[in-house]
Each structure stands twice: as structure tokens, then as C-alpha cells.
């Protein structure tokens, strides 16, 4: 039975300011919880042992979905289920709604939050295990140990970014708003993630992610999201890919492809082509993605297969963005 070790105090602040005061008072002994679907499992597995758990769910005002202005505003506490089903999000940001709808299973989507998915801890076959399992094998860099069982020789943790929303929000040019006792800062999502599996964000211990801001896409913008997983009904990605591009008069421009569940940080495919939409253009993009993305043995799924699926997901994403039947 995986009970929650009851060794810590739970605080339920009503405002962001009160939550920040708690983080300020308790420093790195405190952890944040919202939906709990990631951190509570990790606490059960002995990955965290906080003394104070700050439950954000009682804070009002972080469930906003504002699609009125030139920059959309999404609160960190918006439930994944609500994001996936929101008609305005489905219409304006279809790839985001689709990604949200493909996170975990129905119960977990009702519990989990947008902010939680963005801050999801990195995942690895050697870390998302019970304490007993990790103790038996020998610990690793991410928690309690000094070696990496994936790279064997590396000194850096390579656990995989496994958020479904991150690659999509990256292609949408999103930014995150972070509150701390020092004030509020806004960072492009691409600057929020770093390539270190131990902790793959620049979120400071006394900071709270409060909002996600997404520029209103141009009417010419097309977008898609594709995900590979073991069981289509519930699992984390073994590989995922977000695509966005402008299509104007049959010409593709500003093509953007971000691939994740590969390394600690989502990876943007570079030097992508522009020009008239054609099979040749999609072939070129698929070849570049295949060349640049190299999965590791950090998560489930054969590495060679995952790599071969990169161009496949890219082709499926093009079909999805263009509204073709093959997308399904």
C-alpha cells in the first residue's frame, strides 16, 4: 500500500501572497502541491521529503481562461480536463487542447493542473520507482546517488522532460509568469527549461508559477500535437512532437517543430525549410527531425524505435494540422 508518509505540515493559503510568505519562511523544506498527481506519487516513492506542503488549491484567481486580448492568459490552476474541453481553447489553440486531452487518464486530468504539467518533474526508468527498487539497484544522480544508470559515465542527470503541454506551448511562443517575494517576472517558456534532469526549470525555491501567457495566433497559423505512448489511455509520452507553421497562399513559413520526452529539456528542430507546401518540404523537415533528435534509454520504449518514430510523428502532425483524415 502506497500511503502518503504523514511527516509534514500542510498549509492551505488563500492567496498567492500568503503562499509566497510560506515558501519564504520554510525555504527548501517546503514543496508546492496543486493536483498532486505528480508530487504525491513522488513523495510515496521517497523522492521528496518536505517538512511543509503548501497546497495551492484554495487560491482563487488562478483558474482564469482569458482569450480576449492579443495575449491569452491561462491560470496555473486550470484543470487539465477543463483546458482540453474549453471551446475557446479548442478553437484558438487546438494543439494545446489536444495535448491536454492526451495527458494521463480522465480522473488524473480532472485532478492535474496546467501549472503542474509545466512544472512536472523529469522522468526516468531508474527514478520513477519505489524506494525499495532504487535501493536494490543503487541510487542515481537525481536522488541519493552519484552515478547515472542511463549514460553510465555521465555526471549529469538525463531524466526526460515528460510534459505534454511544454512542447506545444513552446511552438505557441508562450511565456510563464513567476511570482516571488522579489516581485513578478515573465519568462519565455524556452528560457524556463534547462537541460538538467535533476531539476529542469529555473523556478526558484521561493517562486510560484501563476499564469501562462500565449500570444493570439495569426489566422494563418496551423498547429498540431502528436504523442507516442505504451497505452493510449493513460501513459506519459515515450516521445512527443508539437508542430506550428504559417500557411498563406499555399506557402509554409515560420515552421516550428519541438520534440520532447527525449532529454531533460524539449528540443527545437533547427534549420527547418520554408516554401510552397509540398511532399518534398515535409520530407525535408522529417529528415532534419530524424537527424537532430536522438532519444536515450532514460524512459520506456526501444531507443531505435523511438528515433524512427520522430519523422513518423512529424508527418502525422502535418496531416493533423492540415485537417487530413490520416491524422487520426
Amino acid at each position: 500500500m502506497l500511503r502518503i508518509a504523514d511527516t509534514f505540515v500542510v498549509e492551505r493559503p488563500r492567496t498567492v501572497a500568503a503562499a509566497l510568505a510560506l515558501l519564504d519562511a520554510h525555504g527548501d523544506k517546503a514543496r508546492l502541491v496543486a493536483g498532486g498527481t505528480d508530487i504525491l506519487v513522488n513523495i510515496k516513492h521517497g523522492l521528496h521529503a518536505p517538512e511543509v506542503l503548501v497546497d495551492l488549491k484554495a487560491i482563487d484567481g488562478l483558474r482564469v481562461v482569458d482569450l480576449e486580448g492579443d495575449v491569452f492568459e491561462l491560470g496555473a490552476l486550470v484543470a487539465i480536463h477543463d483546458l482540453a474541453r474549453h471551446p475557446g481553447v479548442q478553437a484558438a489553440l487546438p494543439s494545446l487542447a489536444r495535448a491536454a486531452g492526451l495527458i494521463a487518464g480522465p480522473q488524473l486530468r480532472r485532478m492535474g493542473t496546467l501549472g503542474g504539467n509545466i512544472c512536472l518533474d523529469t522522468r526516468c526508468v531508474y527514478i520513477n520507482q519505489t524506494h525499495f527498487w532504487r535501493d536494490a539497484l543503487g541510487y542515481c544522480i537525481k536522488k541519493d546517488g552519484t552515478v547515472c544508470h542511463v549514460t553510465k559515465v555521465g555526471k549529469k542527470c538525463v531524466a526526460a522532460a515528460s510534459n505534454d503541454t511544454a512542447p506545444v506551448l513552446w511552438t505557441l511562443g508562450a511565456s510563464v509568469r513567476l511570482a516571488s517575494p522579489r516581485g513578478v517576472r515573465e519568462l519565455a517558456l524556452e528560457d524556463f527549461y534547462v537541460n538538467d534532469g535533476e531539476k529542469n526549470t529555473v523556478l526558484a525555491p521561493d517562486e510560484i508559477l501563476t499564469h501562462v501567457r500565449v500570444p493570439r495566433p495569426a489566422p494563418t497559423r496551423r498547429m498540431a500535437y502528436q504523442k507516442l505512448r505504451v497505452r493510449d489511455s493513460i501513459d506519459y509520452p515515450m516521445l512527443n512532437l508539437a508542430l506550428a507553421f504559417d500557411l498563406d497562399g499555399g506557402v509554409v513559413s515560420n515552421l516550428d517543430v519541438v520534440v520532447s520526452a527525449v532529454a531533460a529539456r524539449p528540443r527545437r528542430v533547427k534549420r527547418l525549410p520554408e516554401g510552397p507546401l509540398s511532399a518534398a518540404l515535409i520530407d525535408e523537415a522529417a529528415a532534419l527531425a530524424h537527424k537532430q533528435v536522438r532519444p536515450l534509454t532514460n524512459i520506456n520504449g526501444d531507443v531505435a524505435w523511438r528515433r524512427e518514430m520522430v519523422p513518423v510523428l512529424l508527418r502525422r502532425a502535418f496531416a493533423e494540422a492540415l485537417g487530413e483524415e490520416a491524422a487520426a
Binding site: 500542510v10 497546497d55 480522465p106 480522473q107 485532478m111
Partner: peptide
């Protein structure tokens, strides 16, 4: 709303 009670404090 349906949720998993094993993950709800």
C-alpha cells in the same frame, strides 16, 4: 468529478 482517491489528501 471522477478522481482517484489514492492521490487526494
Amino acid at each position: 468529478r471522477a478522481i482517484n482517491s489514492c492521490l487526494v489528501p
